[in-house]
Nucleic acid binder design. Structure first.
Length: 157
DNA sequence: GCCAACGTTGGC
DNA sequence: GCCAACGTTGGC
């Protein structure tokens, strides 16, 4: 089972939005970067995903969600009223993908970017590479476990 | 709100 | 296919 990380702005779609409806799903749409899209397309149902809060006061990993539905054409690309509308895309040849995500858990304490950066031995994680703006990225099993050593949940998970 | 780093666009 | 201009991301 592959592991991933997605960035979100907590006021738009943060971990609390998932926690509010733990049985529901949230479409992860509006991704308009090719590299990020390619990773979205690789996600499989059941994969676990870190929710990372960016562009906000408390930057870092706030929780874990799960892929509830693997990639399908992002409906927003066909909606002229959406800011994610793409006139160059068409239903028979969709350009952008979305997945559905569902709540797993909120971390009792956010794992800050500072602490993630201080970890030794992370493999080539784009999140901590300088200048990277990738909003969807794979996380190796090794990095996933390493990051979770900073999780304050008693008795593991 | 600043600004560096990056991706995308479009003229040539 | 180059590359300058532009827009966006995202930490600070």
């Amino acid at each position: 089972m592959a592991k991933w990380l997605v960035k979100s702005e907590p006021d738009e779609c943060g971990i609390d939005d998932f926690a509010r409806d733990p049985q529901g799903v949230i479409p992860w749409d509006g991704v308009r970067n090719y590299q990020a899209r390619n990773f979205l397309a690789q996600m499989q149902e059941g994969d676990e995903v870190f929710i990372y809060h960016s562009s906000c006061k408390h930057i870092g990993i706030a929780g874990i969600v799960r892929v509830a539905k693997s990639a399908y054409p992002d409906p927003l690309q066909f909606d002229p009223d959406s800011r994610y509308f793409d006139a160059k895309s068409s239903p028979d040849k969709p350009r952008w993908q979305a997945v559905d995500l569902s709540f797993v858990r909120k971390l009792p304490k956010l794992i800050s970017l500072d602490r993630i950066k201080s970890l030794q031995g992370l493999t080539d994680l784009p999140l901590v590479r300088k200048g990277t703006r990738l909003s969807v990225m794979p996380v190796s099993d090794h990095d996933w476990e390493t990051i979770l050593t900073l999780d304050a949940t008693p008795n593991g998970h």
